[in-house]
Write a protein that binds this DNA or RNA. Structure first.
Length: 247
DNA sequence: TATAATGTTTGAAC
DNA sequence: AGTTCAAACATTAT
């Protein structure tokens, strides 16, 4: 799950702020009992990480490829990774289930919620991102997937942003001219926002994908190349004619 | 039906 | 001792 998906979950869960956990279960190996009796103080996210912050302890949730959550509606015949039962204003309890997520308890005092690196954040620092691109010798495809630089970008956003900015995925990061790099950063933010808006409306993402899982270039109609690019070896779709290679 | 994939962490192997 | 890489996780769309 990429940044926009996590952002949406954060928004969907924030109404639980102020409620208390009174029951925990699930097959997660974390020390779940630490969450018992705790008040949910805030729900936050940085890139692909979701944080449920309680007094004295925080739960970090990563959804990976197949992670999901449900409220009051467990998957039949599946043991959740974690169930948190909240009491909400003394009304009916709210059951929050997590499936196939990677969970960790962290000390809230050591929590780094710096979102200047999060492409969906108002605090995203484009100049800092530009400096990172200009000083990195890796292939741009890998740099875009680096969560320390572009938190929230996943393989889909990477593919689309590179196409929108007309940059070949195997370009050497530092060799990309400033104006092109700036545009690439803008397109990464732009597409992440489009992604989020579509998710919010429940629309299929497929409709807005220009290259990911597609066969032909929407600009010149030539056949798209597919390659497992960079160290990350992630599937990358691109147009050799329209996307320029900087070496 | 088999395959591949919106991703990270871990630990073995080199 | 630093790096590289496969495995594990276990679901869902094609």
């Amino acid at each position: 799950m990429e940044g926009p998906g996590v952002q949406l979950i954060k928004e969907k869960l924030s109404y639980l702020k102020g409620s208390f956990v009174f029951e925990v279960s699930g097959n997660s190996k974390i020390d779940k009992e630490k969450l018992l009796g705790k008040e949910l103080l805030s729900v936050d996210s940085v890139g692909k990480q979701l944080f449920l912050i309680f007094e004295g302890v925080a739960l970090r949730v990563h959804f990976g490829m197949y992670g999901s959550f449900r409220i009051n509606n467990p998957k039949p015949d599946k043991v959740p990774r974690l169930l948190l039962r909240f009491n909400k204003d003394g009304k009916r309890p709210v059951d929050l289930y997590f499936y196939n997520t990677s969970l960790r308890l962290v000390d809230p005092r050591e929590l780094n919620l710096d979102n200047s690196v999060d492409v969906l954040s108002e605090n995203f620092d484009r100049e800092k991102a530009l400096e990172k691109i200009k000083s990195d010798e890796r292939v741009i495809s890998d740099v875009l997937l680096d969560q320390e630089i572009f938190a929230g970008i996943g393989n889909i956003i990477k593919n689309e942003a590179l196409f929108l900015a007309k940059v070949h995925p195997e370009s050497i990061s530092s060799k990309i001219p400033d104006d092109v790099a700036r545009d690439l950063i803008d397109k990464s933010v732009y597409f992440s926002q489009v992604f989020l808006e579509h998710r919010k409306k429940g629309w299929p993402l497929k409709k807005v994908l220009l290259v990911y899982n597609r066969k032909f270039c929407p600009l010149c109609d030539s056949k798209l190349k597919v390659r497992y690019v960079g160290k990350s070896r992630r599937k990358t779709f691109f147009c050799e004619k329209c996307q320029r290679l900087y070496l």
